[in-house]
């Protein structure tokens, strides 16, 4: 009798866990659908991007013609900055005095495509939870919470269009559940016209267009004889390493990028210049944390959109090799 009761309790527990797992899996599928929809749908609208003390309205038009992806983002407030992207190639037209500076980027996390299509890395560090529904940009949206499992990353709150699955609003939350950044549509609609005549910058044509003078970074796959990494913060992996010139520096700086699938952290390693005081310090500005330290003869600089504990751990993970 006791054994039968024990077995029935065990089966009930298994069923509950299974239901929970199924529920979690369904929630992850909502996020998966949002990640794909951002690339596969054609849409336009206006969203508000807020970070720290700054807030900008941005007009977006995104088109997927079945083969390629095109997007044009026009910043409506302040300087008329434009961001055009084709796939992961991003070009920023940035008016600067009498010129328009063209900056090239490589990225595939422009709003609303801020979620990666491969969510496996995120699942290690975040838990998902479905909350209530709300109306955003005249659309009905399902709220999904992506909660950090530790204090090494921020949490997110997503509003997903219940019909199209697209991400309509994203909010970044710190450990105190305070909003430290947000992007949200306030106008949104699908488009069906596949014309591409809009896919060009309309920044002042009378100005000279010049390429950014920032030297390009070169991939650096060689392990350095002077430093190594140990005990990285949980969930973060090295995704890139390069040599790059940093403004004001005479020698190239090693730039290592870490990511947990959503958040990115940059580690800069360079020899301390003769006659220059090494930098020591740390700070948090909006959602960006900064940490500067010294390892042997190396100046260590870490920054990223993560809590301060993460940049400190990455800085301390650098071991100087004598």
């Amino acid at each position: 009798m006791i054994i039968q009761r024990f077995i029935s309790i065990f089966l009930l527990a298994c069923a509950a866990l299974s239901a929970q797992a199924a529920s979690d899996e369904e929630t992850w599928q909502l996020l998966q659908k949002a990640a794909v929809a951002a690339h596969a749908l054609s849409y336009q609208g206006i969203f508000i991007c807020q970070s720290g003390q700054q807030s900008k309205s941005v007009q977006i038009k995104h088109l997927f013609n079945g083969q390629y992806e095109f997007a044009r983002n026009v910043v409506l407030d302040g300087s008329p900055r434009e961001v055009l992207s084709q796939g992961s190639d991003v070009v920023i037209y940035n008016p600067k005095n009498e010129k328009v500076v063209i900056e090239k980027r490589y990225g595939n996390n422009m709003f609303p495509a801020i979620l990666p299509t491969d969510l496996d890395a995120i699942k290690l560090s975040y838990a998902v939870r479905v909350a209530e529904t709300e109306r955003v940009a005249d659309r009905q949206a399902q709220i999904v919470l992506l909660e950090a499992k530790d204090n090494l990353r921020y949490s997110y709150k997503f509003w997903l269009d219940t019909e199209y699955g697209l991400l309509l609003k994203s909010v970044m939350l710190n450990a105190k559940n305070e909003v430290i950044g947000s992007i949200a549509f306030n106008q949104f609609g699908l488009i069906s016209n596949l014309d591409l005549d809009w896919f060009k910058p309309k920044v002042d044509a009378r100005k000279n267009y010049v390429m950014e003078d920032e030297p390009a970074a070169t991939t650096d796959t060689n392990a350095s004889p002077h430093w190594k990494l140990k005990d990285l913060p949980a969930g973060y992996v090295k995704v890139d390493q390069m040599k790059r010139m940093v403004r004001g520096k005479a020698l190239p700086v090693t730039h290592v990028i870490f990511s947990d699938g959503l958040a990115s952290v940059s580690l800069f390693i360079e020899p301390i210049e003769s006659g220059v005081k090494p930098r020591l310090g740390h700070s948090v500005v909006a959602n960006t944390s900064y940490y500067a330290s010294v390892a042997g003869y190396l100046q260590i600089t870490v920054l990223g959109e993560v809590p301060e504990a993460t940049v400190a751990k990455i800085a301390n993970a650098v071991v100087f090799i004598k």
Partner: peptide, 8 residues
């Protein structure tokens, strides 16, 4: 090299 959504 590691742009965030808002940095664009």
């Amino acid at each position: 090299s590691a742009p965030t959504a808002s940095s664009y």
